[in-house]
Nucleic acid binder design. Structure first.
Lengths: 213, 213
DNA sequence: TAGATTGTTAATCGATTAACAATC
DNA sequence: TAGATTGTTAATCGATTAACAATC
């Protein structure tokens, strides 16, 4: 028997729920109703309840949801109870920015090393991770239990490197290169296409400009 | 009379069409049918035709689409025929990474300055843009025609800075802080939530792991 | 108990896909 | 002209919202 597949739209919303619940938790809020949360997040209460009920009944009639409990449960759903070892391929500004962002580590994502071809970068430290030469990549993956590789290299090299990474056993790829990686379906690829994000902004700006003309 | 609003799903796909057409253009491809493009992009040909016809009939029966023409038209739709002046608030690694990314400039997005509070950064150059003190922000916006402000400051300061930016006339915000900015609806905000992207990756990884257990 | 709010079913809305006549 | 492929309408599918009985 097949458990109903969770839709992509729902999954996309989960991290945002998690963030809002984390914020409430920091403010020592104990309980919240779907209605209150819906006001804050500007989505319908109905959608919140539908989304959560894909995973289980986390609330209580007449009361609402316990903030701490719901936060923890969504964290589990998102797989945040696991620890993830990350390597970053490409130690340019973006790679360094990712390595330096301490919030990831708080959530259990630990950057183990960066890799680059530039001799000036090799050997330097970014936060607590070393920049290593690409030649050591395969061995490093073999010797360490690496879960995720972030790709921040130029467009042209990204597909080649991705193929290598998969060959060497990487299962999760966080891709920042402006290209779609065609990899076996058992590999999980999450894309961050900054240029496309900027174009969406420019679309909306230029359309608003046209409206007022 | 109201022209039918273009759905968000369609707009989200436009930059990807634009990218694929740009790639084809570089390979000197002259024409492409919705079927061929659908094979490459792994979406249905029907969706491609539907999406494009929201904006006009760019193709020709029996022939398909002229790559160069369609690329240019989508560029116009996305507002890429305009030039955009950008400032970056926060000159940390991420801000510097954005300023250094030359591809944006090629598309008409020019970084005019970065702003930061850190004395070590102030006065330094990132590519062709200077890091200036936050005190000069208001004057700089007044003296230059700034279209977009990228926010790469910590979560706590982001909403305050965003409010100031709006007060000083900024209409477009590219927000990298992990917070939702509640601004007047005439302000266009495009969010890049890296932590949420990483959580989506971890969700999918941990679910695949469970499946094989 | 009475009031509040969930969990869930049913209704609606919107987006995607299929089909095909129009036409290059 | 015959073949190919668009533009567009109609059918299907999926996601969101509304409604309300269940129940804390």
């Amino acid at each position: 028997m097949h458990k109903k597949e969770i839709s992509k739209a729902v999954i996309n919303r989960l991290p945002r729920y998690y963030r809002y619940l984390g914020d409430l938790l920091e403010k020592d809020e104990v309980r919240i109703s779907s209605k209150e949360l819906s006001d804050k997040m500007k989505v319908t209460a109905s959608q919140i309840r539908q989304d959560l009920n894909n995973f289980g009944g986390f609330g209580q009639q007449g009361y609402g949801y316990n903030v701490e409990y719901l936060h923890a449960e969504i964290g589990k759903i998102l797989g945040l109870e696991n620890k993830y070892n990350i390597i970053i391929i490409g130690a340019g500004n973006l790679g360094q920015a990712l390595a330096n962002y301490g919030d990831f580590e708080r959530r259990g994502f630990v950057v183990r090393a960066l890799f680059d071809i530039s001799p000036e970068l090799i050997g330097t430290m970014v936060r607590s991770a070393e920049v290593k030469p690409m030649e050591e990549l395969e061995a490093f993956i073999n010797d360490n239990k690496i879960d995720i590789a972030a790709i921040t290299v130029p467009k042209a090299s990204a597909p080649i490197i991705a193929t290598d990474l998969v060959k060497w056993g990487i299962k999760g790829i966080w891709n920042f290169a402006p290209v779609d990686l065609n990899l076996p379906k058992e590999i999980t690829v999450e894309n961050v296409h900054l240029a496309e994000s900027l174009m969406k902004l420019s679309y909306r700006l230029s359309r608003k400009k046209k409206e007022t003309e």
